[in-house]
């Protein structure tokens, strides 16, 4: 049986999915048993799985003849890879080995959802061919991935704050580190979301003749932006740290999920090209 590019794409994506599951289980069990040796294996497995994921996306791009960002399957797969990359970066920066417990399930959930969608390769329709749409999608993707990192760190913070297993001093340092990971990721996400909204507006001007038309997708991206604007202002000007900031970050990420998935599933919107039927 010949090995086709489509099979390589599927195989590498399958390996990536399996690798993420394995890494997450190791993170989870080593967190419970405090197994240092196991815990250090998890980042290596994550990195290898991510490399397979990148190969899968590259093959996809090669097969389609364009960046793999234009349909739901491609975007979700790339989004999942982005969340894993955010995890790898922030894990390395913070040297926290438990970030994966919260972040890998987010990446996995997105990837599993991607598996359920059609994987058919599609050409890029004319209105999707502009420069600004690529910038819009890619910056939104970076923003979403960074917000996922904020969410993971904040969730972990809230969970750790709820349990008093670790010694006080060590626990406090760990929590502060998580709080800082969340803050940094939120700033990255906020800046990229701003660029994403602006570039989306410029693209919309070319396609619909308006920068902004209060489409539910646009409105929810504004809501997400407002929530993270409030997060940043309360942190820097009102001194919100820890639990309060973490709660705002979790709400912010829920808004991200509504923006991407909720609007697609439950609200009619101009962004939905499914409504285009041959006349």
């Amino acid at each position: 049986m010949p090995i086709t590019a489509a099979k390589i794409e599927l195989l590498t994506m399958g390996v990536a999915t399996g690798g993420y599951v394995a890494a997450w289980l190791i993170y989870l069990f080593s967190l419970r048993s405090d197994g240092e040796a196991n815990r250090s294996a998890a980042p290596v497995i994550t990195l290898i799985a991510w490399a397979f994921h990148v190969v899968s996306l590259s093959v996809r791009g090669y097969r389609a003849g364009h960046l793999p960002i234009f349909n739901a399957f491609e975007f979700l797969s790339l989004f999942s890879a982005g969340v894993v990359l955010a995890h790898i970066i922030f894990e390395r920066l913070s040297r926290r080995k438990d970030l994966g417990v919260a972040l890998l399930p987010v990446a996995l959930a997105i990837l599993v959802y991607a598996w359920t969608l059609s994987r058919a390769v599609e050409p890029v329709i004319p209105i999707f061919r502009g420069f600004w749409l690529k910038i819009h999608i890619l910056t939104a993707l970076v923003a979403y991935s960074a917000f996922a990192a904020t969410f993971g760190a904040s969730l972990l913070y809230l969970i750790r704050k709820g349990s008093d297993e670790a010694p006080a001093a060590e626990s406090q340092a760990g929590e502060k580190l998580l709080d800082d990971v969340a803050r940094r990721a939120a700033i990255v996400g906020f800046c990229f979301l701003t660029v994403g909204i602006i570039s989306g507006g410029i693209w919309a001007e070319y396609v619909w003749g308006r920068f902004w038309s209060w489409d539910p997708k646009e409105t929810w991206s504004l809501i997400t932006w407002l929530i993270f604007a409030a997060y940043i202002h309360t942190r820097y000007h009102r001194g919100w740290r820890g639990r309060k900031a973490a709660l705002v970050a979790v709400i912010g990420f829920l808004a991200v999920m509504v923006t991407y998935l909720g609007v697609d599933l439950f609200m009619y919107r101009q962004h939905n090209f499914l409504f285009w039927r041959s006349p």
Binding site: S118, A120, P123, I125, P126, F273, L274, W276, R277, S278
Partner: peptide
Amino acid sequence: HWGPDARFPEK
């Protein structure tokens, strides 16, 4: 795969 009536213009 989008549905029986879904068609997109190429040009």
